[in-house]
Computed example of a mutant assay.
Amino acid sequence: MTAFRDRTDAGRQLAALFAGRDDRDPVVLALPRGGVPVAFEIARALQAPLDLVMVRKLGVPWQPELAAGAVADGDDPEMVINETVAAMAGLDRADMEELAAVQLDEIARRRSLYLAGRTPVAVAGRTAILVDDGIATGATIRAALGATRRRNPARLVLAVPVAARDTLESLRPEVDEILCPLPVDALGAVGLHYGDFTQVSDQEVVRLLSAAAPPGGEPG
Rank of each mutant, 00 (worst) to 15 (best):
A108S: 03
A108Q: 03
A108F: 01
A108M: 01
R109D: 11
R109G: 02
R110G: 02
R110S: 03
R110D: 03
R110A: 04
R111E: 06
R111Q: 05
S112R: 12
S112E: 13
L113K: 06
L113N: 02
Y114R: 06
L115A: 10
L115C: 14
L115V: 08
L115M: 14
L115H: 07
L115Q: 14
L115P: 02
A116R: 12
G117I: 05
R118F: 13
R118P: 01
T119W: 04
T119F: 03
T119G: 02
T119Y: 02
P120D: 04
P120K: 06
P120L: 07
V121C: 05
V121N: 04
A122E: 13
A122D: 10
V123L: 13
V123G: 05
V123F: 05
V123N: 02
V123Q: 03
A124C: 03
A124M: 03
G125Q: 12
G125H: 12
G125W: 11
R126H: 09
R126A: 03
R126F: 05
T127Y: 00
A128C: 09
A128K: 00
I129T: 09
I129E: 05
I129W: 01
L130R: 00
L130E: 04
L130Y: 00
L130M: 10
L130K: 00
V131Y: 07
V131A: 10
V131N: 05
V131F: 09
V131G: 06
D132R: 15
D132L: 14
D133K: 02
D133V: 07
G134K: 00
G134S: 05
G134W: 00
I135S: 03
A136S: 13
A136I: 10
A136W: 10
A136L: 09
A136Y: 11
T137Q: 14
G138K: 11
G138H: 14
G138P: 05
G138I: 13
A139K: 02
A139D: 13
A139E: 13
T140H: 03
I141F: 10
I141A: 09
I141K: 04
I141L: 14
I141T: 15
R142V: 04
R142G: 04
R142L: 14
R142Y: 06
A143F: 09
A143T: 07
A143L: 08
A143M: 07
A143G: 08
A144R: 06
A144S: 12
A144I: 09
A144P: 10
A144G: 15
A144N: 09
L145E: 01
L145M: 12
L145G: 00
L145K: 07
L145R: 07
L145I: 15
G146S: 09
G146E: 07
A147Y: 01
A147Q: 10
T148W: 04
T148G: 06
T148C: 13
T148N: 08
R149A: 15
R149V: 11
R149E: 13
R149G: 12
R149T: 13
R149W: 14
R150T: 10
R150M: 12
R150F: 08
R151D: 00
R151Y: 01
N152T: 13
N152L: 15
N152H: 15
N152S: 15
N152M: 13
N152A: 15
N152G: 08
P153G: 12
A154M: 06
A154R: 13
R155N: 12
